[in-house]
Design a protein around this nucleic acid. Structure first.
Length: 606
DNA sequence: CTTAGGG
DNA sequence: CCCTAAG
């Protein structure tokens, strides 16, 4: 906000200067329409355009605007709070009033620090911008009219800013005169009518400026934000609550889709209420501002909340496009951010200026995305509904994690991320079993850190597995709103071995330790998973006596776990004194005999 | 956050 | 696996 004010303050002056030089010399057939209102609008736009051109950022939402403004502030290294700005401006104007400063001086007085630098910069940009717009054959009528208006109005400003302005040889506008004729008190009244709040400012000029601005933009100077697309102004955003014009609650969201194409921007501008307002002003140029003032003042309405705005835009979209909102919209709205926003937000992090398709104005406009969304990573609930794969991050992470992608047997058909064309490994468990079963069996005490090949293979598998899990199975939406986790990731033998090994090393219960040291490569398998698995292992090892012959009613032995492992598990269970619990848990049907004996027996069997 | 235990 | 109570 503040930046807008400050920026306008300084840029206005600059604008005036440059414009004065430029237009004075060649100031040709200037329309004698010298409506300050029009000028204000134009000026504001011009200023903002240059402003945003500097940084190449385009605000789209409130937050984004804030950010942009912050950037602007950084860029200009001139930070002023709203009040500061206001005060400063007022003082500067005061000075002007009394000491007849030139516009340049005014600028200096209000924005001392960056005066020269900014001026040069902006001058260049202005010269670049103005001729561009005027010379561009694609320019629409609005554009031209804008330029037409700019010139005379610049002069108006000149005469306005300094009472002895550089170029006082331009007649004032009716509106301006009217305002001029008002007393401070009247101006204050007008201000109140315009902005709906009292003002104690006694500076005439400031009041006039504010009023004119308010009339033009129907919002506080400090809260008017503009949306630029490709350097083209395409819309403005009203930030303040109190001053949003009820007519254009969505105008702020409007933006052009044609990137950098002036025509598109113009079109959008015209399509929006904002644009229409502009045209109105253009056509109405010459109207006394007092009328306007009253009219506008009466209309001023409290700005809807952000969410309300979005809803409005949605409505607008429906009406205009007759394109029903996606079903996901609802939830997205609930998340206080539009779905398109969310979706494109991700892509935004890669490009310089990313635009997000927005529905505002029903023009399928693209709004630049700055950084509003994704305060936090989209969590469970959203993910599935937005169709968005949360994998991007995880995916990349995994990819980087994987030393080399390796041409693993990619038989899977689940291509998750087109970008990273990663395919699910078809039979992770099986393959792994094949690979490591022997190792696990033979070198049962495979040491802590997986062997080289083992680790590599595991890592790769993990990569894939992780990707898979993160991608498609990370969270599965449940009808009732619950989210369940991935598909059962069967415990592979190697995993079991690792687990047992880890338990033997660290002891049961140190699951986090085990996970860290023995399952470092298996990013899935939380410590809880380990615990659960261990519990199951214990149960299995005690409950299912692989021993006896007739003891196997279920032929497809549900315990693919090799006996040695079970034995080991038992041993460990003994060591950890978990036997009792296990036995208790296993419904006492076990042979409660001395575990050691039984164990020995079993070990003999196995 | 980690464990332990029930579901 | 999920969930949750308990440290």
């Amino acid at each position: 906000m503040e930046m807008v004010v400050g920026g306008e303050g300084s840029e206005e002056a600059i604008f005036v200067d440059t414009a004065a030089d430029e237009f004075d010399s060649c100031s040709a057939p200037l329309k004698q329409v010298t409506d300050p209102v029009v000028y204000k609008l134009v000026r504001a736009r011009g200023a903002t355009v240059t402003c945003f051109e500097c940084i190449g950022l385009v605000p789209a939402t409130d937050d984004e605007l804030m950010e942009v403004e912050n950037l602007l502030e950084l860029e200009k290294s001139d930070l002023l709070s709203v009040s500061d700005v206001v005060d400063t401006v007022g003082q500067g104007l005061d000075k002007d009033d009394t000491s007849e400063k030139t516009s340049r001086e005014f600028k200096g007085s209000s924005q001392t620090k960056n005066a020269e630098v900014d001026e040069e910069k902006l001058n260049a940009q202005l010269e670049e911008a103005l001729p561009t717009s005027s010379s561009n054959p694609n320019n629409t009528q609005a554009d031209e009219s804008r330029n037409d208006v700019v010139e005379p109005n610049l002069k108006v400003v000149l005469s306005k800013i300094g009472s002895a302005g550089c170029k006082p040889n331009f007649s004032l506008l009716k509106g301006e005169i009217n305002l001029d004729k008002l007393t401070i008190r009247e101006l204050q009244e007008t201000f109140r009518a315009t902005f709906g709040r009292e003002t104690s400012v006694k500076d005439k000029l400031w009041l006039k400026r504010r009023i004119a601005m308010g009339l033009t933009n129907s919002c506080d100077v400090c809260v008017t934000n503009f949306i630029i697309n490709g350097g083209q102004f395409v819309g403005k955003k009203e930030e303040t609550c109190k001053n949003l014009d009820c007519e254009d609650p969505i105008a702020g969201e409007v933006c052009s889709e044609g990137d950098g194409i002036p025509a598109a921007g113009q079109k959008v501008m015209e399509d929006t209420v904002d644009g229409s307002e502009l045209r109105n002003y253009l056509s109405e140029s010459g109207h006394g501002s007092d009328d306007m003032l009253e009219r506008r003042g009466a209309k001023r309405v409290r700005k809807p909340t952000k969410r309300y705005i979005e809803e409005l835009s949605d409505k607008e979209t429906r009406e205009c496009n007759k394109k029903p909102m996606p079903s996901t919209k609802r939830l997205e709205q609930h998340k206080a951010s539009s779905g398109s926003l969310v979706r494109t937000a991700w892509g935004a992090h890669s490009g310089a200026i990313v635009t997000r398709p927005d529905s505002i104005g029903g023009s399928g406009v693209r709004v630049p995305y700055v950084s509003r969304v994704r305060r936090c990573r989209p969590r469970k609930s959203v993910v599935a509904l937005t169709n968005f794969q949360p994998s991007e991050e995880a995916l990349m992470r995994k990819i980087t994690e994987c030393s080399k992608p390796q041409p693993c047997s990619l038989g899977g058909d689940k291509v998750v991320e087109p970008k990273a064309a990663l395919i699910e490994e078809p039979l992770a468990p099986e393959e792994e079993k094949e690979n490591h079963c022997l190792t696990g069996m033979s070198e049962f005490s495979q040491d802590q850190e997986p062997t080289d090949k083992d680790s590599r293979g595991n890592i790769l598998l993990d990569c894939i597995a992780d990707i898979n899990s993160d991608d498609k199975a990370s969270t599965v939406p449940t009808m009732k709103g619950g989210m369940r986790r991935k598909h059962h990731r069967a415990w592979t033998l190697t995993e079991v071995v690792k687990l047992v090994d880890g338990v033997s090393k660290f002891g049961a219960g140190r699951w986090s330790e085990i996970k860290r040291l023995s399952f470092s490569s298996h990013s899935y398998r939380t410590s809880v998973d380990l615990k659960d698995k261990w519990r199951n292992l214990l149960k299995a090892s005690f409950a299912s006596p692989p021993s006896d012959k007739g003891m196997n009613p279920r032929k497809n032995a549900p315990s693919p776990i090799p006996a040695p492992i079970l034995m080991k598990v038992r041993e460990l269970a003994e060591i950890n004194g978990q036997v009792h619990r296990i036995l208790k848990a296993t419904s006492e049907t076990e042979d409660n005999s001395g575990s050691s004996v039984n164990e020995n027996n079993r070990s003999g069997y196995l």
